[in-house]
Amino acid sequence: MKLNLKIWRQKNSNDKGHYEAHSVEATGDMSFLEMMDVLNEQLINDKKEPVAFEHDCREGICGSCNMVINGQPHGPQSGTTTCQLHMRHFKDGDDIVIEPARAAAFPVIKDLVVDRSSFDDIIQAGGYISVNTGQAPDGNSIPIEKDMAMQAFDAATCIGCGACVAACPNGSAMLFTSAKVAHLGLLPQGKVEHTRRVQSMVATMDKEGFGMCSNIGACEAECPKGISIENIAMLNRSYIASVFGGQK
């Protein structure tokens, strides 16, 4: 099939950027990124610079490959990362617009590559349980209700791809932040630091320049791991409790 691509090209963060048209021949069995490989091979053979995009595991778990395809982070198939999206979901002659994730807190580095280090900063603000190696009691010393463990796991499946921020008209990182708060806050081990964690992570999230949540739910719909905005409600709840119930 022949596809007409419109791809965002931007030399670096200072460049204004523009759309560039390309056409590429693909087959249905190709993944979206393999289609991009074919395009890049073409460009290299023409001695041009290939399109920069991030990718690594190509099995839907590392979270590198978020790009916005026809207005949707990771493209049209729900619950699927770009690397697992296959070209059979497109048809001959389709126009595809490929853009980087857009948010003020995710500046473009080059073409489709954006800087997501603000996510690391949010985790560093408290997205952990303070336990040094060697301090741990026996793994079975604290029983954890199965459903609770599952709920924590569901929140913990976040791959940090930034689709939520890309999908949000406000560029908000509430789904990402709340998923970590929920993962750790639901487990007894994580409850000890919950108050401190919530305050610190929210403060950092604000500082990084993310927008505010207006409960639209686009993040949840585009999240390749199906993380629910119930986590955002939990974060709000925890935040209120941490402000009014905390000692500080």
Partner: peptide, 9 residues
């Protein structure tokens, strides 16, 4: 033990 304490679900 270590991983459970870290919150690995």
């Amino acid at each position: 033990d270590q991983c459970v304490a870290q919150g690995v679900p």
